[in-house]
Design a protein around this nucleic acid. Sequence first.
DNA 1: CAAACAATTTAGCCTTGGCTAACAATCTTC
DNA 2: GAAGATTGTTAGCCAAGGCTAAATTGTTTG
Lengths: 160, 160
Amino acid sequence: MSDYPQQHSEPATAYHKSGDALPPVEQHAQQYETVRNAHETELIEDYVELIGDLLRHRGEARAADIANRMAVSQATVSKMIRRLNELGLVTSKPYRSLFLTEEGQKMAEISRTRHNVVLHFLRALGVDDSTARIDAEGMEHHVSDKTLAIMQRFTEQHQS
Amino acid sequence: MSDYPQQHSEPATAYHKSGDALPPVEQHAQQYETVRNAHETELIEDYVELIGDLLRHRGEARAADIANRMAVSQATVSKMIRRLNELGLVTSKPYRSLFLTEEGQKMAEISRTRHNVVLHFLRALGVDDSTARIDAEGMEHHVSDKTLAIMQRFTEQHQS
DNA sequence: CAAACAATTTAGCCTTGGCTAACAATCTTC
DNA sequence: GAAGATTGTTAGCCAAGGCTAAATTGTTTG
Ligand SMILES: [Mn+2]
Ligand SMILES: [Mn+2]
Ligand SMILES: [Mn+2]
Ligand SMILES: [Mn+2]
């Protein structure tokens, strides 16, 4: 919920003139709050998902691979791994491959599934593969469970 | 493009075992880069869009209204307005309503249009209004022009 | 087995986007 | 027109997520 006591400022009534009206303040506020919350976990999820993918496809997940695939410096990855460690999502011995904890595996699984639903939905919609991959990488973190379910249903019905 | 010289680490070949394979490193890197770029302009776009909406629906855009609708402190808004000013997107006299520059109006228009395409698309898909609004607020910044065009076409064909 | 190379870590810097607390200006109301 | 309420600004704090440069550890190879 939004802290910050509701201030007066805006007139309460909305005699609407043009196009779509503004949503009520509380609802509008919730939109932005939800986005801010998503952005807090977004990067974490991408790291965990990528580590899981590297483990499943390559057998190991090295910091250098992550840096390459994320197009980010190795220092950035190293710092992030410390954070993932503190969050109890990965285990890592210095200079060795990373592994996911129980909790990390759960998060990776959830993220991967959700990512795939969005990707396959975009393709079913008619978006080309390369564009679908790019858009899905960002969209995935902002799709609610409700919308996700609808996307999945759509995809199933639109594949021959 | 990605800086950081490509390192060796990963084996080049991919004899694929389970599910979807990992995309080639360069493509994968571009996914994350595009997301990072989107996140750089996202908040700016939301502010400018909101200021435009307040101007069109209320006739003025006060810092307090923005703070209320964003569910954020007035100090945060005040700081952000200074930035928007420096970016040449808004004009503001202290303690007065904000206005958009030419450039600001252009950005507001583009953002509003894109936001609406995504919102109407989600509703056409069958997502309830309140969920659609929340999801659209985040998704809008991660939808490419190509996908946007497809969404628009879909929406037109699916409204009675 | 010593060099050279590759991978990882650490230290220190920067920007963004939040916050609170204190102060300043404006508006409203009596 | 002063008091009180509302609005706006400023200062200073913090965490996240980037970066570079330098130091360290592992690995490969002549
Ligand atoms: Mn993902
Ligand atoms: Mn992602
Ligand atoms: Mn996002
Ligand atoms: Mn938005």
